[in-house]
Amino acid sequence: FDIYVVTADYLPLGAEQDAITLREGQYVEVLDAAHPLRWLVRTKPTKSSPSRQGWVSPAYLDRRL
């Protein structure tokens, strides 16, 4: 999967189903980028939180090589 970094805090609107909150600087794996406005991502697990999966706007993501 492609690795992206979150460029700004992402707080989903209440109406968005299956969306997750992301923090600036967080790394995520993009699982599904087929839709231009919503990408399915999975967060990297940390010592304090397990990995999470949900939909985010790709405008908040920047690809890492």
Rank of each mutant, 00 (worst) to 15 (best):
S51W: 07
V5R: 11
K44C: 15
A8W: 05
V28Y: 01
S57G: 03
V6I: 05
Y60V: 10
E16S: 09
Y27Q: 08
H35T: 09
E16A: 09
R38V: 05
Q26W: 11
L11F: 15
I20L: 12
S57I: 05
T43I: 08
A19H: 13
F1K: 08
T46Q: 07
A19M: 09
R52C: 10
G54K: 01
R38C: 14
E16F: 08
D2Q: 11
D32A: 05
E16P: 08
Q26G: 03
S51F: 06
V28T: 01
V56D: 01
G54D: 02
L13H: 13
Q53S: 10
D18T: 06
R42C: 05
Y27G: 03
L37I: 06
P50M: 06
F1T: 08
A33M: 14
R23F: 14
L13F: 11
S49E: 15
V28N: 00
P50V: 08
S57T: 04
R63G: 09
D2E: 12
P45R: 08
A33D: 12
V30Q: 00
P12Q: 05
V30S: 01
K44Y: 15
V6L: 04
S57P: 15
V28W: 01
A15K: 11
H35A: 06
R42D: 01
R52E: 13
S51L: 06
P45N: 07
Q53L: 11
K44M: 15
V41A: 01
D62C: 13
W55C: 05
P58I: 04
T7G: 04
E24M: 14
V56N: 00
V6P: 00
A15F: 13
D32Y: 08
W55A: 02
L65V: 14
D62Q: 14
T7E: 02
S48Q: 11
I20W: 06
G25P: 00
D32E: 06
L37R: 07
D2W: 13
R64Q: 13
R42V: 04
L31T: 02
E24L: 10
P36M: 05
T43E: 03
W39S: 00
R52A: 12
T21Q: 12
S51G: 09
I20N: 02
D9A: 06
A33W: 09
L13C: 13
H35Y: 08
P12F: 07
R63K: 15
V41K: 00
L22E: 00
L61F: 03
T7C: 12
L61P: 01
G25M: 02
T7P: 01
P36W: 04
D9M: 05
E24R: 15
L22N: 00
K47S: 13
R42L: 04
A19T: 09
T7D: 02
S49M: 12
V30T: 01
K44A: 13
F1Y: 14
Y4D: 00
Q53W: 08
L40W: 09
S51M: 09
R38N: 05
P12Y: 06
D2Y: 14
H35G: 11
Y27D: 04
T46A: 06
R52M: 14
G25H: 03
R64Y: 15
P45T: 08
V28Q: 00
A19F: 12
V5C: 08
K47A: 14
V5H: 04
Q53M: 13
Y27S: 06
W39D: 01
E24C: 14
P36R: 06
L40Q: 03
D62L: 13
A59H: 10
A34Q: 13
G14Y: 11
A15L: 11
P12M: 04
V41H: 01
T46I: 05
V41S: 00
E16H: 09
L11K: 11
S48R: 09
R23T: 11
P45F: 05
V5F: 10
G25C: 04
K47G: 13
P58A: 06
D62V: 14
Q17S: 13
S57N: 15
E24K: 15
D9I: 03
R38W: 10
P50Q: 07
I20Q: 03
P50H: 06
G25Y: 02
R38P: 00
R64I: 15
D18W: 08
T21D: 10
K44P: 10
R64V: 15
K47M: 12
P45Y: 05
L65I: 14
S57R: 03
V30E: 00
S48E: 14
P45C: 10
A15Q: 12
L61W: 01
V30P: 00
Q17A: 13
R42N: 03
R23A: 08
V5M: 09
R38S: 07
Y10H: 07
V28I: 05
R38D: 02
P36N: 07
F1A: 09
Y4V: 03
R23V: 11
V56Y: 01
L61I: 04
L11T: 14
D2V: 11
D9K: 05
F1S: 08
L61M: 03
K47E: 14
Q26R: 03
L13W: 09
A8Q: 12
L61R: 00
L11V: 15
L37V: 06
S57W: 03
S48P: 04
L31P: 00
L13I: 11
W55R: 03
T21N: 09
G54E: 04
Y10I: 08
R64T: 14
R42F: 02
L11R: 11
L31I: 12
P50C: 08
V28R: 00
W39H: 01
V28D: 00
Q53F: 08
A34G: 11
P12G: 07
D62I: 12
D62F: 08
H35C: 11
G25E: 01
T43G: 01
Y27N: 04
S57F: 04
Q26Y: 03
V30C: 03
